[in-house]
Simulated scan of single mutants.
Amino acid sequence: MRDFRWPPPPDGGPRTYGPGPSAPRTGRPALPEPATELVTTPHGVRLERLVSGSGDPATVFAHGFATGIGATRPLGSAVNGRKVFFQFRGHGRSDPPAGQLTYGDLARDLRAIADLSGATRAVGASLGAGALCHLLAQSAERFERVVFFLPAVLDEPRTAAARDRLSALVEAVQSGDVSTVAEAVSAETPPAVRNTPAGWAYLRQRIDQLMRDGLASELAGLADQAAVADQADLGAVSARALVIGSAGDDLHPAAVAEQLAAALPRAELHIYDRPGILWTERADLRDRISTFLND
Rank of each mutant, 00 (worst) to 15 (best):
A182I: 04
A152C: 03
L234E: 12
E268Q: 11
D11N: 08
G199A: 04
A35P: 06
G12C: 03
H43Q: 13
A140R: 12
S139F: 01
A161M: 07
T72M: 14
L166W: 12
M1Y: 05
R49Q: 14
E156D: 12
W6A: 05
R25N: 11
R46G: 11
L210E: 05
G20E: 08
F292N: 07
H91W: 06
E144S: 06
N294Y: 09
R121N: 13
D249V: 03
Y202Q: 11
P19T: 03
T41C: 13
S52C: 01
R89A: 08
L203N: 08
T280G: 07
V243K: 12
L278Q: 10
A35V: 12
A62H: 05
G76V: 01
P24I: 00
G176I: 06
R282F: 06
L264E: 06
G27N: 04
E281M: 06
D164Y: 00
E33V: 02
Q205G: 13
T280K: 09
C133Y: 02
Q100T: 08
R266Y: 11
R142Y: 05
R282W: 01
E33C: 00
Q209A: 15
D287P: 00
S290A: 15
E33T: 03
L215Y: 14
V181W: 00
L222F: 13
I207Y: 03
G90C: 07
R121M: 11
R46K: 09
A30K: 00
N80T: 14
G118F: 09
W6N: 05
T16M: 08
G18A: 12
N195G: 08
N80V: 13
Q174H: 04
L278E: 11
L269A: 09
P34Q: 04
A263E: 10
E183A: 14
G118N: 06
A168I: 01
D208W: 02
E258A: 04
D273Q: 06
H252D: 13
S167F: 06
D177Y: 00
R194H: 12
S126Y: 08
G90L: 02
L106Y: 04
G92E: 08
D233L: 13
P253E: 07
T40F: 00
Q225D: 11
A30L: 01
F85K: 05
I207P: 00
V178N: 03
T72W: 10
T67I: 07
R240I: 02
Y272P: 07
H252T: 15
S175H: 09
G92Q: 06
D208Y: 03
E37I: 01
A58L: 09
G214L: 03
R163K: 13
G20I: 03
I289M: 05
Q174C: 07
S22G: 13
M211F: 02
G53N: 09
R194S: 12
A98W: 01
A226E: 10
L106I: 05
V51K: 07
H63V: 07
T189Y: 02
P10D: 14
A66M: 10
E183Y: 04
A184R: 03
G44M: 12
G128V: 11
G128W: 10
D115Y: 01
V123K: 05
Q231F: 01
P197G: 03
R121Q: 13
A152Q: 00
I113C: 13
G44W: 10
A254L: 10
A255K: 13
L154M: 14
A262Q: 11
A262L: 06
R194L: 14
T16D: 10
E171D: 14
T26V: 04
P7K: 00
Q259R: 15
